[in-house]
Simulated assay, not measured.
Amino acid sequence: MTALVQAHDLAKSFDVSPPWLNRVLERKPRVQLKAVDGVSFSIERGQTLALVGESGCGKSTVARLLVGLYEPTRGGMQFDGQDAHAAFKTAEGRILRRRVQMIFQDPYASLNPRWIVEDIVGEPLREHGILKEGPALKARVGELLQSVGLSPLDMVKYPHQFSGGQRQRISIARALATQPEFLVCDEPTSALDVSVQAQVLNIMKDLQRAQGLTYLFISHNLAVVRHVADQVGVMYLGRLVEVADKAQLFATPQHPYTRMLLDAIPQMKHTGRRRTPVQGEVPNPLNPPSGCTFHPRCPLANERCKTERPPLQMLRGVQVACHAVEENRD
């Protein structure tokens, strides 16, 4: 069975150089920030892959690459067997954009405050020529609002009249308007209270079951990931360090960084036990460490880790990029 989404060696660099005149006067070179550096994964139809990692590890950049908001510096993505980034530039790209949609992180920033909900949710339908103005559009917007637990009567309201959780439901309704097959969710619950998070996540799970949706779910909250994911990819400084089935990752994490993240989660049964905080600071992405970028923080690092970058390979039944796991140093 071929995967619906296949990312191969995806990379994205940003030019963060000082202005031209400063570079000339101060004799400074151009500076490139490698936000994503060679990420490969695949997602089966109807499944959820979650990407986790600390802030600034490149998760949101991956999300924007997948929906075509960014052009990759290297590598590419296949969607349902076709080259997505080549297709996004052509006339057929509109059809592809209907099939791939995104839910953004901040429901306060992603909705136009001057538009009523009917216009917000109806915009994709009008833009893609699915429905024109009129009773049919109104009826479809009402259906979409009901599918996310809101009322058709909410159509005439503005975003400021809703709570954060309700706004995120509006964002989900908008993303579902074109009947997409693949949804990229960039931390869709991080701005919400815990009780509201659960409601939004349950809605997303129900929609996935009802419509056979495929999700890429980005989060730094491992409790959320445990609730929604089938597979989990752990990112560190723009690279994937471990990809495994959810149950396997939580039961037997392989990479030292994954273990560190899981150790930091509070657990009721371990009340009183001292938790291991995530050691050290994330290095400056403009000047990443040589070899394995995690080696300055890794308790298992040796000389090889400082010089040789570990490839992502199958070890012990999971994909992991770690010399220590390969050499059974743990």
Score class of each variant (00 low, 15 high):
80 D>W: 13
252 T>F: 03
288 P>C: 02
156 V>M: 03
219 S>E: 06
182 F>S: 10
29 P>F: 04
233 G>P: 04
266 P>Q: 04
285 P>E: 00
211 Q>S: 06
330 D>L: 12
49 L>H: 01
29 P>W: 03
26 E>C: 13
35 A>N: 01
223 A>L: 12
97 R>N: 12
104 F>R: 00
104 F>S: 07
35 A>H: 02
218 I>E: 07
95 I>R: 12
168 Q>H: 05
330 D>H: 03
90 T>H: 13
15 D>F: 11
19 P>W: 06
121 V>Q: 04
189 T>E: 03
24 V>P: 01
11 A>V: 04
186 D>V: 02
159 P>W: 08
305 C>H: 09
236 Y>V: 13
225 V>Y: 06
19 P>V: 10
114 R>G: 05
97 R>S: 14
42 S>C: 11
158 Y>G: 06
12 K>S: 01
5 V>C: 06
153 L>N: 01
114 R>F: 06
107 P>W: 01
188 P>Y: 08
319 Q>R: 11
145 L>D: 11
196 V>N: 02
132 K>F: 00
298 C>V: 05
124 P>E: 14
202 N>Y: 13
302 N>D: 15
146 Q>N: 05
302 N>H: 10
164 G>R: 13
201 L>H: 05
93 G>M: 12
292 C>D: 14
130 I>P: 00
64 R>H: 10
160 H>T: 05
3 A>S: 14
43 I>A: 11
83 D>N: 15
309 R>C: 10
